[in-house]
Design a protein around this nucleic acid. Sequence first.
DNA 1: AGGGAAATAT
DNA 2: TATATTTCCC
Length: 563
Amino acid sequence: MICTEDDQLLGWKDFPKGLKVLLLDEDCNSASEMRSRLEKLDYIVYSFCNENEALSAISNKSEDFHVAIVEVTAGNSDGVLQFLESAKDLPTIMTSNIHSLSTMMKCIALGAVEFLQKPLSDDKLKNIWQHVVRKAFNAGEKDVPESLKPVKESLVSVPQLQPVKSAAGDKSSNETEPFTTVPGNNNEHSSGCDKYPAPSTPQLKHGVRSVDDGDCQEHTIFSTEQDSGEHDGDAKSVETTFNNTVAESTVQTSPREQQGQTIVKEENGSSPHQKMEADIATSSPSNNCPDNRTSHSAEPSKASAPHSSSGTKTNKKKMKVDWSPELHKKFVQAVEQLGIDQAIPSRILELMKVEGITRHNVASHLQKYRMHRRQILPKEVERRWPHPQPRDSVQRGCYPHHTPIMTFPPYHCNHVPAAGQLYPAWVPPASYPNGLQVWGSPYYPAWQPADSWHWNPHPGLHADTWGSPVMPPSLGSYPPYPQNGGVYRPNGMQNRYSMLEKSFDLHPAEEVIDKVVKEAITKPWLPLPLGLKRPSTESVLRELSRQGISTVPPQINGSRGRS
DNA sequence: AGGGAAATAT
DNA sequence: TATATTTCCC
């Protein structure tokens, strides 16, 4: 497949060599690593640690870069998307550890030519030139940026390509997909060209990035003025001015590690993404495409960009946090790690390691999270355990002090006995204030109203849903739980429960029993629901052993052997 | 200071 | 209506 490059790209000797790559990665370490890798591949790399700098560089000399590689993280998606919008002319490849369809979609919709998931192989990196070629290819004769001329010329020299390109006059060429000659990713519409709609993102309007043809007409979308979002709002934030000088403000060169937030990227302003679908298309309203170059030079300063009405305003207003699936996932992981009753905003924030969000944001999200749980769990519980048991010592044990909130106990009451607090303060899970059983409700049972969540791209998966396990046990990507790891229950109960949760609907009876048994193992002093008999000591021990638990806490061992 | 939840904004 | 932000109270 990769036939060509050597034979055909005669115009640019050693073709990929010398291609200028703009590298944008908040994590400077990662950036430099990538940089060296790219350099080994003979690309010329210009790396930036924040989008403002990158945008600035682009606006000052737009034609200089052939392709951009941008790292997306849960925390920087806003900035990245902003970048995408602003750098429409530059074929932009996203790279990320994130495996989120919605994030990918957003990026693609906003014009990314490709979304590469890490780890990146050298092959992937090596082939980024394809996008440059495609762009050169698709661009109208006159619109080929100076820097791409060589590439385009190379193409011209290729017989097979010739027709297409020449024909490219504009649209006639539709049939002759140039893609055939370009190995690799065929999907994607890359730059603009409505001619080649992006197969990969059918539902999105491809027009988003109009690019090439300098036409920047407002791509079709005039779906009302939903731009509203931006401009207006800011009444609060001052700043209005905005001199495009975007760049300066934040310089975050330090490794993201945990230096805490500090750097808040403010971009936003219009936040194109916010909601996928529809908006995406419209999103760009703000941006005027014009700005861009095509006509190089222009005024450096104001050209930059997006500004215009709302685009990248540098205004530091509040930045509305978009709880993307990734971000939420991090949130959930943090909460799970801490345990519900210790999950307080500041700690969650710490664990999330996401810059750009504040404790308040987390608190707010936590509030919502809890609310959902309260709302949903009872139902789940009820459904599974329709035998409310009167009892009312209730609601206190697990809850440290106040916290009348939860309708169910923090999960470690059931599943993650944090050494210290399991026995002492535990409360009969039999029922809670509302009289609901809670055995069947592990820490993260079903909070997944998800379908209604616009950003849940995987209806079938629990991963991104509220309160549900983030990963299936087998994937083991779940971070170990520091507080319980090895102490009482060395290995994977957590996942076990997750799994149970998941299969619950499939085999209720079995799972319920299984779960109850485990519950009994963990908390022998509890009464069993549903008239189940306690397992024998032997079976309990066997089960524990099977799970790799060799040492049995005295309570279990001694308290009640069998019923 | 910081958590939590109500009030408020979008 | 739902979600995020702001405000208020502990």
